[in-house]
Design a protein around this nucleic acid. Sequence first.
RNA 1: GGGCGCGUAGCUCAGUGGGAGAGCACUACGUUGACAUCGUAGGGGUCGCUGGUUCAAUCCCAGCCGUGCCCACCA
Length: 876
Amino acid sequence: MIDKTFIPRQIEEKWSKRWIDDGGFAPYGEGEAYTIMMPPPNVTGRLHVGHALTMTLQDILTRYARRRGRATLWQPGTDHASIATQMMVERALYEQEQRTRQDLGRDAFLNKVWAFSQDSQKSIISQLQNIGASADWSRLRFTLDEDLSRAVRHAFVRLHRDGLIYQDQRMVNWDPELQTAISDLEVEQRSLEGQLWSIRYPLADGKGEIIVATTRPETMFGDTAIAVHPEDERYRHLIGRKAILPLTARHIEIIQDSEVDPQMGTGAVKITPAHAFPDFEIGRRHGLESVVIMDKRGRMTDAVPEGFEGLDRFAARKKVIDRLGDEVVAQTKIVHHVPHGDRSGVPLEPYLTTQWYCDSTTLAKPAIKALHSGRIRFIPSTWDKTYLGWLENIQPWCISRQLWWGHRIPAWYGPDDHVFIAEDEAQASKAAREHYGKDTDLRQDDDVLDTWFSSALWPFSTLGWPQQTPDLNRHYPGDVLITGFDIIFFWVARMVMMGLYFCDEVPFSDIYIHALVRDRYGQKMSKTKGNVIDPMDLTKQYGTDSVRFYLASLSTPGRDIRLNPDQVEGYRHFATKLWNAARYAQGAGAITDKRVSAQTVKVPINRWILRELASTIETIEESFQTYRFDLAAQSIYQFCWHRFCDWYIEFSKTALTRAGADSQETKEVMGWVLLKALGLLNPFMPHLTEELTEALAPDHPLLLRSGWPDPPKMPPDDPACGQVDWLVDVAREVRRVRTALRVPAKNLMTLQVVTPDDETRQRIDALKDILIRQARLEKIQVIDSSVATSMAARFTVLGCSYALPLEGVVNIADEKQRLEKTITAKKQDIEKIEKKLNNSEFRAKAPERVIKENELRLHDLQNEIERMESALSLLT
RNA sequence: GGGCGCGUAGCUCAGUGGGAGAGCACUACGUUGACAUCGUAGGGGUCGCUGGUUCAAUCCCAGCCGUGCCCACCA
């Protein structure tokens, strides 16, 4: 027997375990492969609600595909998250032991990070399993696993061999806090209020001055020119002359460059080639010297005047302004964008260094083409532009990081700094031997690769690449990627580039971009705002299945989710409702081991629920095709609650009291339909549906691997279904009257059917018992219009009139009011339709179908009003 | 500065060139041995504003207002 109360926790643990014990989630069968690559969560700690969402959607697709007979692989794993993880461990190390990574040394530090990441991975996997993720855990991968690392080195070597990875000295975005270069994508522009100082630079010949505006006076010691626009009349006469750099004795030239905007500041700009991107370019054009005045921590070097050496950049700024004194002729507040490191949160410095770069421009071309040619598509397609816009303007990708945690760059240097790129040290040594003609000590590059370099290989590195494994052949390319818009550049585009480059195939054809989960007020969740909701808390409170269903039902493409925990409760109610429906079915003797077919089922209510089931299956099917998780969820919800529970179960209460064939058929159909409904709901609520299926049908195989329901083949205009539709309409009308007239529930009414047509007679014959129960009637009479009772409430269904005699039911006034109200509403409708129909242009131009529809509606409305008006007159 | 969304019932959101919808919340009444985590019925919206296209606009187009996001080396 199914327990009286539903406790999500109990069944969730049970089923998580059962699935694993029963063989887990490895692909099986001979079906066509279906592959989803899980975006690997960082090994930095707890999952957030965004993870819960993305994993839920992936799991829904996975469970659906598996049951459609596809050999389904959902490849799980975790990401080493170079910067983020290293930062966390460094911070903890400092807090606990007041030591830095340098204190520990590279090897000892990396040991600590490994230990941390292993723990973290364990916790992440258990959280994922907690939300029911049916990924193939037996294939769990970590981006730093040995085989994945080999793939990274192999990729690096090949790209280098093909000239697509190279070393270059140029300006990078430098993070002075983390002391590493970062890529453009890791730069976050923050809009801040700052100061714009106008500073007097005297001319070297003593005849005048030039006023330069800057927000960064501390860089002035690196100035090697002042630039003005060639056509700026104010400064034309100064071009070619020299100015004295304040606080120093250096002379710098005033040059012209058309990049200078005469509108900005004073129109004269100081040029610091070593410490600003545009200045670097200008410096290169004009052959200016680059004077480096800051070290990698953002402190002044000794290339600055006395008193400034070693000062932090912000302290230096203050001091420069102080020392300049009256030479600062103006100071204005401005709001400007300042680049910050997305991890460290500190302002970045443009910095001149040698780094490894990847030629993204070349790799991007096929990736752009892949979208144009339809080999990949975004859902929703609004993201096309984002993807293309970035790829079309892509810059060289800085892939080296001055960090320890990550894939060490497979480059080895000889004593003369000759570089050898190889997949391992042995091969590098071999190359060195050939190069130098003898064994030589080599030194490996200290730097590691950008995390996203290894992530870009994920769709094939997890499958054994560069080996041509059976898995690789079977599961590459995959089918769909589900991810957030925030990593389209970081990850999606790069996977497409690398996939095309190394495997000649896009890694997936569909890219579903899911919502951003915000808080209930539409705010982004963040630790600093303190509005972060832990998905594990939600599942504890409402049950995993409810949380999954909630997230899916809000997943409309292109729309963010406002997470309101109170609303999750509604879906726990839904789960409870189903639980109780199953209890009822069990108690009512539902039969679950009998195959039911539309060809043999005869009883109208049974045919009706089959039709409803069929249309639900069709809607869900369509919804899955278009990734409309919301519509699929809504459709199954409607079916379970408002078709099966609200009507069918109620009907069955009458049908089951009858002995014989009808009752038997109803038990069979009820059991069969309920199992199908559970099957449809299963991808959304896997635990509950397995539990109830097992309770109802102990011999049923696990839903996890059982086939997806096919819609019963119902004819389009099934007469039996039409009869039940009529029943529903009439029952509703009677209930409406009862409520309006405040007829006490225990008073049974008589329903009079006025001169019914043959069809209506048949309907009554077939469904009389059920209608009596549903509408709380005493009996149903067929009468002639001539004997119509005067004191009666009246309504019309499908062109036939019905009356409810009001004898003994007092509230005549209420009924009058009800009629008047309906009449007014209907008259308004009539007016609108008449206006339309009387419009000659409408008649001339509207399609015949629309005209007919309107005429028909008008006719029906007029009929109804006529009857109601006569009913109203009878009441007076 | 460029680009992309969103604005429909109190709240969260579906939806369509031709009769405004769901869930929650609200109101009234509760009977029927699955369920009060429930049932039945009901109230509530000039579909952001203004114009245009159309026989017909919540839906298509333009502008505006509000709101959110992404991109961009400009001092």
